[in-house]
Design a protein around this nucleic acid. Structure first.
Length: 837
RNA sequence: GCCGAGGUGGCGGAACCGGUAGACGCGAGGGACUUAAAAUCCCUUGGGUGUUUAGCCCGUGCGGGUUCGAGUCCCGCCCUCGGCACCA
């Protein structure tokens, strides 16, 4: 036995030598990354006996540097993919770049760099940053959407959809900046309806553009029964598609008022979800841009109406529909006839009616619609109650009554509850031939035209003789000209690029002009996940055999901000391809998980506010593994989290403790059976927790479980209370459980502790339910629902024993003195609650 | 306004199906080691009270309710974040 003093000295010396053993990530991370790449450890192929698992992360836009938000998306999904890999799946987890789009063009305009150069420089930088994550990306499959090898097929898909009648040209009002000569996305229109680039007033302009007929799939897109997606996202898509059922009904136009062009129309149609209120119609309203407006406006109102229409056209959608705005409108001088009661009602135009929804005209029922009520009040139009509110005395309403009720003032339908009235009137209208039941969607067709350079050119030619001619597939790709000029005006460079515009007609070989619009980048991202299956395939967008093997995507992860755009477009695209016989599945992404956003100082990171965390310096200092683990620890992945360097230090300390634990010699000191049993129990419980957490993306609690195991093993190490082999087994388990999270760190420790390379080819540990099972539990004893005592008891305890034990406890007895025990509640494996009156 | 998510210590967050609130980590305080600092290790850490290793009271945004028992369920509010915006 050593004396205490010298014992202390030895401990000191050991501690000192440990410091020399310190975990230095810089020495191991690049080493293993190189080794894995050299050994093609993560390259995957189709000839594999394991079941396939396609785990996809939304590819990043090539905006510049990768920031911590990218890591927050990439690292946890890689952990999940690695977990699946260790669980015995043949895992495809690819990476690529969404490379077309506005920012590249803006950089070109403001800094004189060609968009291609700007984008590819960003790709280079982002790729090397991505490599530092230590993910299992199979880089042979990289996809970059702005390369001709890729966009050739984007164009090919366009042609396919065109042939199928799913792509068409049409006019659509858009946000148009007269100065920039470009269409603006809603988000590019600033508050007052000004262009974000040049501050000019944005107007609404009718432009001839290309559309995809996504509305043809509206009904099928509402069916989520074959995919496992978050409720949140499904609800958002449902609301976005906005199905509503009602009736379309014709109103007559009063004769003799129309003056305009020859064949004047005798009626018009409106859509309503409330046919039960049709007797309460006191006016009709048309959208200002409705084509009939000109026809039925009377001479004396012409000036006023034209003025209003013109004003509406100069307002953006945003401005026009801004909340809290007073209703505006003008009377046209014409009247319509309500066919059900023969009443004559004035026709107005107002900008609260949208041309893009329903028929562009509404029957207004001020008594039972808030907007119509407001409008009627403003212009002194009668308000006629046809659905009686409860306890209605026949008085005027102070606000619209929109709830169901009994029908009044409705002719033969009086007395019917409004729900029945809807059906009765719908039937009546159908019988009389006035109209019929109709389903309407809020969803509009997908506008894919962009008046910009940096996108895939729409492969179409306009010929004076042959008209619109699609470019034959063999002539693809229609290449973007390299020599386009970027003028600060923001005008579409293609329009002014003679060498691009001037071409020959594929049909008649005479001079013709190319379409100068390019395609929305959401098109590129609607099929990139197909390309990963065979990224270098030359004869088609993908190799059919490989596609069949990998697709659909088993697990997709990405931000919830894509709920109604990318995720909906991709679903549509796949359904369209399926109907064209190009793919044989219905949905692109079987499972979906949305991660939250990582914030600093409680706010979203934004480049403009200088609040962006760059991961590089943290990776350089503490290692990618620490950053990976930290990002998963900050909070539930779907809720995002707060970036705090101090928390990152905590993770680094934890990894250090594991480092010592594994490499420091273990000495047995009288191993005890109970301790060995306890060790196995704890280890297996952790395997279970970690496996279940990983499966469900609950990364934060998974890390906590591993920390607990580490702390426990630390104690065991100090006490030497189990055999060396038992301890070694537990350490191996810890490393295996940690391997998906900290791939470099665990590979180093795995090989250092004498195991053959590579830990990542090891199966994930399995737990033994028998070892997980508890032998004891803490029985809680409550009196009147308040915790008063607890005892550790065997799980085999019977109710009778538990009751007796509870009542026999000294502490409980003191409570029993104060009153009669009226009842005892026993919850197995939990508690005894004694009720004292 | 509507839809969705959320509100728990000084902070990030745990808590299965209604059953021990605060796991795990950060931060803070104290101690050990050190000439010193860093690093590391140990102890304490929701608030109050107390005879200070017992015990008791309060406590999960606010107000009610259901229940033997509520962070969890119900009703009514308040606040934060994300999305959508006159959809007939």
């Amino acid at each position: 036995m050593l004396a205490y003093d010298s014992m202390g000295l030895i401990v000191q010396m050991v501690r000192k030598s440990e410091q020399m053993l310190k975990y230095i990530p810089q020495e191991i991370e690049s080493k293993w990354q190189q080794r894995w790449a050299q050994d093609r450890l993560y390259e995957v192929n189709e000839n594999d006996t394991r079941p396939k698992w396609y785990e996809l992360t939304m590819f990043p836009y090539t905006s510049g540097d990768l920031h911590i938000g990218h890591w927050y998306a990439m690292a946890p999904s890689d952990v999940h993919a690695r977990f699946k890999r260790m669980k015995g799946y043949n895992v495809l987890h690819p990476m690529g770049f969404d490379a077309f789009g506005l920012p590249a063009e803006n950089a070109a305009i403001s800094r004189g760099i060609h968009p291609f150069t700007w984008t590819m420089d960003n790709v280079e930088r982002m790729r090397s940053q991505l490599k530092s994550i230590g993910a299992i990306y199979d880089w042979r499959r990289e996809v970059i959407t702005c390369l001709p090898d890729y966009y050739k097929w984007t164009q090919w898909f366009f042609l396919k959809l065109y042939e199928a009648g799913l792509a068409y040209r049409g006019k659509a009002p858009v946000n148009w900046c007269p100065k920039c000569q470009t269409v603006l996305a809603n988000e590019q229109v600033m508050g007052e309806g000004l262009c974000e680039r040049c501050d000019s007033a944005v107007i609404r302009k009718e432009l001839e553009q290309w559309f995809f007929r996504i509305t043809a799939y509206a009904e099928e897109l509402l069916d989520f029964s074959h995919i496992q997606w978050p409720e949140r996202i499904k609800t958002m898509q449902k609301n976005w598609i906005g199905k509503s059922q009602g009736v379309e009904i014709a109103f007559g136009l009063e004769d003799g008022l129309a003056e305009g062009a020859g064949s004047s129309q005798q009626e018009f149609r409106v859509f309503t979800t409330r046919p039960d209120t049709i007797y309460g119609v006191t006016f009709a309203v048309f959208a200002p841009e409705h084509p009939l407006v000109e026809q039925f406006t009377t001479a004396e109102h012409k000036d006023e109406v034209m003025h209003y229409v013109d004003r509406a056209r100069h307002q953006s959608d945003i401005e026009r529909t801004a909340m809290g705005r007073d209703k505006s409108g003008v009377f046209t001088g014409s009247y319509a006839i309500n066919k059900l009661n023969g009443e004559r009602i004035p026709i107005w135009i107002a900008d609260y009616v949208l041309m893009s929804y329903g028929t562009g005209a509404v029957m207004a029922v001020p008594a039972h619609d808030e907007r119509d009520f407001e409008f009627a009040k403003r212009f002194n139009i009668p308000i006629k109650v046809v659905i009686a509110p409860p306890d209605w005395s026949g008085k005027e309403l102070s606000e619209a009554y929109v709830e169901p009720g009994l029908m009044v003032n409705s002719g033969q339908f009086d007395g019917l509850p409004s729900e029945q009235g809807m059906e009765a009137i719908a039937d009546f209208i159908t019988e009389k031939g006035y109209g019929g039941r109709q389903t309407t969607y809020r969803l509009r067709d997908w506008l894919i035209s962009r008046q910009r350079y940096w996108g895939a050119p729409i492969p179409v030619v306009y010929c004076d003789r042959c008209g619109l001619v699609p470019v034959p597939a063999e002539e693809l790709p229609v290449l973007l000209p390299e020599d386009a000029e970027f003028r600060p005006t923001g005008e579409s460079p293609l329009k002014y690029c003679e060498t691009f515009v001037n071409t020959t007609c594929p049909k008649c070989k005479n001079a013709a002009r190319r379409e100068t619009d390019t395609m929305d980048t959401f098109l590129c991202s609607s099929w990139y996940f197909l390309r990963y299956s065979s990224a270098d395939y030359k004869d088609a967008p993908f190799d059919g055999t490989k596609l069949k093997y990998w697709l659909p995507v088993d697990q997709y992860t990405g931000g919830a901000e894509h709920a109604t755009m990318h995720l909906l477009y991709a679903r549509f695209f796949i359904k369209a391809l399926r109907d064209l016989g190009i793919v044989d599945f219905d949905e692109p992404f079987t499972r979906l998980f949305n991660q939250g956003i990582i914030v600093t100082e409680g706010k979203k990171m934004s480049k403009s506010r200088g609040r962006v965390i760059n991961p590089d310096e943290y990776v350089a200092e503490l290692g990618a593994d620490a950053v990976r683990a930290y990002l998963m620890f900050v909070g539930p992945w779907d809720q995002g989290g707060e970036w705090d360097d101090r928390g990152l230090n905590g993770i680094a300390r934890w990894l250090n403790r594991i480092w010592f634990l594994v490499l420091r010699a273990y000495t047995e000191d009288e191993p005890k059976e109970t301790e060995i049993k306890n060790l196995r129990h704890t280890t297996h419980k952790t395997i279970k927790r970690v496996s279940e957490d990983l499966e469900k993306f609950r990364f934060n609690t998974m890390i906590a479980a591993l920390m607990e195991l580490t702390n426990y093993l630390g104690k065991v190490h100090e006490e030497g209370s189990v055999t060396s082999s038992d301890f070694g087994e537990a350490i191996d388990t810890l490393l295996l459980l940690l391997a998906p999270t900290a791939p470099h760190f665990t590979e180093e420790l795995w090989t250092r502790s004498g195991h053959p390379y590579s830990i990542h080819n090891q199966p994930f540990p399995e737990w033994d339910e028998g070892l997980v099972a508890e032998e004891e539990f803490t029985l809680v004893i409550q009196v009147n629902g308040k915790l008063r005592d607890r005892v550790t008891v065997p799980v085999t305890i019977t109710e009778e024993e538990a009751r007796e034990l509870a009542l026999s406890r000294e502490r409980i007895k003191t409570y029993l003195k104060n009153g009669e025990c009226s009842r005892i509640i026993y919850v197995p494996r939990r508690l005894v609650n004694i009720i004292i009156a």
